[in-house]
Nucleic acid binder design. Structure first.
Length: 479
RNA sequence: GCCGAGGUGACAGAGUGGCUAAUGUAACCGACUGCAGAUCGGUUUUUCGGGAGUUCGAAUCUCUCCCUCGGCACCA
């Protein structure tokens, strides 16, 4: 079985072969922390989290790096608006971001470097570029990358020509005037005394947006990465700029062997944007939906497709996920009176088939949609087996084992970190519940359905669901 | 202007040359149940934007037409 990934660089599906054996250096562009993260960030980081977890599952030794851009024009402008110190502001939103990621069960990266902690390395990189003659300092003290030194790389990722890019940029008004060439990009920007900045050989300033990723990916990963990821919107100019400056810095090609980009998230079919006012922060969404549902919603779409967010879609995802959770619940119930001796009922073979289907789907450019589809098939068959037959404890535990195994990759079942409020749950003691159930059993025995239903309704209101089955009544707290 | 993605059943969304086109949601019917829930079976679903062609065979390849969405130096 061969893992294939879609590489933006070649626009083709390619077999995934890391540069060195099983070692994978993976860098994913993190957020600029000038505000709370929105659902688009969630989409991106959950997608790459699943990719990372799958690579680990497939036996790769993954070094995952994801930065935080904690100084940038947007941070400065926002700080000016609020009157806050820019570093206090970015520290605050960095905290918010990390909290969101934890709540969404996104595994922490092996390294989470911040730009402000790497100014020295950035200056060193600029010195290297200047020494090589692929960057230049202007009269004002700005440092730009000199694209004429690597014209052959223009458009390698965006697949556009310089003319095409200029045509597009011609509509922009903010063309800086001290560049030699319009497509050159800033490596260092001079700033006035009263703005956040650092001293450098070229005067007081701050780094340009792209150089941080070059510097930090090399420091924490390698001069050449196996995977570089991010949102589709980063393809140009951000990732292309990284290619120019990184390869110029090291003289090595390629900077990253595979480039993976996730698709956008739209809100009710419209592009998410502040001007449209259709912006949702992760925190807002997690107040309404369990984290597992949000992850399920995102994972149930291929990472490169556009995914449309609306409440109905989330609710639908929640109901779909519930089916899988119910299966797990049903197995756990079946375990109570399952025989101890080995009785397989075909579960072993089913588990093998499902694992194979999961790997086949995921090997195809991380086709989580198909992988989860197979999980539903598995789920249905398991439900049939446990109602029609009586598999042994060991076999049932193996089924649970497969769910856990797959969830190590997808992370869609565990709600323990969810901060969504449980709806209408009033704490009842277990004794209390059992007492009510026994009163109801009595009523049912006497065919006093009115009374029995009243108790069931009462418990339902208090968040306890009763389910009558062949083996008697079962209860559970509604999640 | 340049570049890209996509149009599949009620809806969402896989599949990209060959058994009855996954899977989920919804609605309805049936089984189980006193009822409900959960679960299982069935229906909505001979159908893949329109047309032409290639082929023994196409949702899948080619041509053409129509439509939707996104990117082009703020952005995940």
């Amino acid at each position: 079985m061969v893992l294939k990934v879609y590489n933006t660089l070649t626009r083709k599906m390619e077999e995934f072969i890391p540069l060195q054996g099983k070692k994978v250096n993976m860098y994913v562009c993190g957020p600029t922390v000038y505000d709370h993260c929105h659902l688009g960030h969630a989409r991106s980081y959950i997608s790459f989290d699943v990719i990372r977890r799958y690579l680990i599952y497939r036996g790769y030794d993954v070094n995952y790096i994801s930065n935080v851009t904690d100084v940038d024009d947007k941070v400065i402008y926002r700080a000016k608006e609020t009157g806050e110190d820019p570093f206090t502001l970015s520290a605050r939103f960095t905290g918010s971001f990390i909290e969101d990621m934890e709540n969404l069960s996104v595994l922490p990266p092996d390294s989470r470097p911040k730009v402000t902690e790497h100014i020295h390395e950035i200056i060193e990189a600029l010195k290297t570029l200047l020494k090589k003659g692929t960057a230049y300092v202007t009269q004002k003290g700005n440092v730009y990358y000199d694209l004429s030194s690597s014209v052959e790389k223009i458009g390698v990722l965006s697949h556009q020509t310089a003319e095409g890019l200029l045509e597009g940029s011609g509509r922009r008004v903010d063309v800086e005037d001290d560049k030699r060439y319009q497509l050159d990009f800033a490596l260092w920007k001079v700033v006035p005394e009263d703005e956040a900045g650092w001293d450098s050989p070229w005067g007081r300033g701050r780094p340009g947006w792209h150089i941080e990723c070059t510097v930090m990916s090399m420091k924490y990963g390698s001069e050449q990465l196996d995977i570089h990821g991010g949102g589709m919107d980063l393809i140009f100019p951000h990732h292309e700029a990284e290619i120019h400056q990184s390869e110029s810095c090291t003289g090595k090609h390629p900077f990253s062997k595979y480039w993976l980009h996730n698709g956008f998230l739209t809100i009710s079919k419209e592009k998410m944007s502040k001007s449209l006012g259709n912006f949702f922060t992760i925190k807002e969404v997690l107040k309404k939906f369990p984290a597992g549902t949000v992850r399920f919603f995102i994972t149930y779409t291929h990472y490169r497709s556009t995914v449309d967010f609306n409440e109905e879609a989330l609710e639908e995802a929640g109901r779909a996920r519930k089916r899988l959770l119910n299966t797990i619940y049903n197995i756990k119930n079946a375990l109570f009176d399952a025989p101890d001796y080995d009785k397989d009922c075909g579960l072993g073979e089913l588990i093998e088939q499902t694992r194979y289907a999961f790997i086949t789907a995921m090997d195809d450019d991380f086709n989580t949609r198909e992988a989860i589809g197979d999980l539903f098939v598995f789920s249905r068959k398991v439900n049939s087996i446990i109602t029609d037959e009586e598999p042994g404890k060991a076999s049932l535990n193996h089924v649970i084992g497969l769910f856990s195994e797959i969830d190590e990759v997808l992370g869609i079942f565990d709600d323990s970190k969810s901060c969504a409020p449980e709806v209408n749950i009033i704490e009842l003691s277990e004794d209390n519940i059992i007492e009510l159930i026994s009163i109801r059993d009595n009523a049912r025995y006497n065919k006093d359905w009115k009374k029995a239903d009243a108790i069931r309704d009462e418990l339902k209101e208090k968040g306890i669901a009763l389910e009558d089955g062949k083996e008697g009544v079962r209860w559970r707290r509604k999640g």
